[in-house]
Nucleic acid binder design. Structure first.
Length: 421
RNA sequence: GUGACUGUAGCUCAGUUGGUUAGAGCGUCAGGUUGUGGCCCUGAAGGCCGGGGGUUCGAGACCCCUCAGUCACCCCA
């Protein structure tokens, strides 16, 4: 074999497709009930959208993007996430003028050049929502509910749900000073990585998994304790709404997401039956993003969730998946005359709604029946020279083995009574 | 980008202290019934033992390099 699939990518083979369809179907159903409308955007955008939207200092932008120049010398990037694209599209198409609140959802591939591992691919599927236009804390909670409802309806349980508030431009600068002062006090105990982040993004030192960092920052001041009045009220209202819904959550003051656009609410849903990449999904509020992309000030919240990870959890927990569809009918045509004769009947059955197939390898009857069995066909129709002469066929019920002669013109009626659609 | 581990048939894996022609199960195909599936029986196809170099009379096995995969760090979905 000369050709190989690129690192960190995967083929989804026919055997896997039913489970994807199953998950996609549940997602679509939940979105419909929550009244989120699907939006589709290109898989690549101008690079600047992401560098400005996500933040230059983030790892995603700094070292994980698939960026290339096209023949017109434009810098393009395969989307590493969807929020920037959705907001771009929202602004570019003036969706905000058509209605004050746009509740959008998406599902599609994202691209990040990282070292692959369990639950981490270079091309991976995400679904997510963006509710653009509302500043209400209850809107934050609705997005959380969308994610949790999808998980619930797929049978997941025992998920950890963490929330935090990362503040806003009013309170964050003050907190940042307090934090940096503290961190400078323990600077010697920090990991080299974290020392570097002291300058660029000190808040992210708090969710470092490095043992040193964790120990040293155990008593670090937290954003949630330094919120301005509005942010605090917002955060409290989010928690009150969750309480009213009897949803268990954990306030994690160290939760900081890796995308710069978040303000106020940030949240993450984790699963214990994943590897170290345990985040199933996460999201938050990004009230400043639209403005930073050149639009009017527009409050918004959303989340993104990884679908491969979702499938991993479902496999680990042996949850029911979609099964491959079985065949209603396998048509055994023996020899060319029988084949020519049979084709119109098969076509009619298919147009009528039956799922049927015929052997295109001109194999022996034994082989064709084996094929029918492999496909789990419910019925088999057999047409050979004998049947041709009498315009008849044998119809066989594959689960009982019963077989009877039926006029070929009556196969449709036979199936309709045996296998009503 | 860093580290650890693993690469033998389509899949899951054996392969002894280095020793003739590299095996099994599953899957595939064919036959056992000249026109009848599953179960069973018989047989067949299918391997540059990831690649390159080295040690040796002899390497799937030992050494070096390389590539790939997996997991972890990091980061996130």
């Amino acid at each position: 074999m000369n050709y190989r699939i690129p690192t960190g990518t995967k083929d989804t083979l026919p055997a896997d497709i039913p489970r994807w369809h199953h998950v996609e179907k549940v997602i679509g159903s939940v979105m419909r009930r929550f009244n989120y409308k699907e939006i589709r955007t290109p898989v690549f955008e101008y690079t600047e959208l992401f560098t400005r939207g996500i933040g230059e200092t983030t790892d995603v932008v700094g070292k994980e993007m698939y960026t290339f120049l096209d023949k017109g010398n434009e810098s393009l990037t395969l989307r590493p996430e969807m929020t920037a694209s959705v907001v771009r599209s929202y602004l570019e198409n003036n969706l905000g003028s058509a209605q004050p609140l746009n509740k959008l959802y998406y599902l599609g591939p994202m691209f990040r050049q990282e070292r692959p591992q369990k639950g981490r691919l270079r091309q991976f599927m995400q679904f997510g929502v963006e509710a653009i236009g509302s500043a209400l804390p209850e809107q934050d909670v609705e997005t959380m509910l969308v994610a949790m409802t999808v998980y619930e309806e797929l049978g997941l349980h025992g998920l950890t749900f963490k929330i935090n508030s990362v503040g806003c431009p009013v309170c964050r600068p003050g907190y940042r000073e307090v934090l940096v002062r503290f961190l400078n006090g323990v600077r010697d105990g920090l990991s080299p990585e974290s020392v570097k982040r002291l300058e660029t993004n000190p808040m992210r030192i708090l969710d470092s998994k490095n043992e040193q960092d964790v120990a040293v920052t155990a008593n670090a001041p937290l954003m949630k304790d330094h919120l301005c009045d509005e942010c605090r009220t917002h955060f409290e209202r989010v928690q009150r709404a969750l309480g009213a819904l009897h949803i268990e959550f954990e306030v994690d003051g160290r939760l900081v997401r890796g995308l710069d656009y978040y303000t106020r609410t940030a949240y993450e849903i984790q699963s214990g039956s994943l590897g170290s990449q345990n985040a199933l999904g996460g999201g938050g509020r990004y009230d400043l993003l639209a403005e930073s992309l050149g639009g009017p000030p527009t409050p918004a919240v959303g989340f993104a969730a990884g679908m491969e990870r979702l499938l991993l959890v479902m496999e680990a927990e042996q949850l029911p998946f979609g099964e491959p569809e079985v065949l209603d009918l396998f048509w055994v045509a023996l020899g060319e005359p029988a084949m020519t004769f049979s084709i119109p009947y098969i076509h009619a059955l298919r147009k009528h709604g039956y799922r049927c197939d015929v052997d295109y390898l001109n194999r022996s009857m034994k082989a064709q029946l084996r094929e029918a069995n492999r496909q789990q066909a419910r019925y088999v129709v057999i047409v050979g020279d004998q049947e041709l002469q009498q315009a008849q066929c044998q119809v066989k019920n594959m689960s009982t083995g019963e077989q009877s002669a039926v006029p070929v013109d009556s196969v449709m009626q036979f199936l309709q009574s045996a296998l009503p659609l």
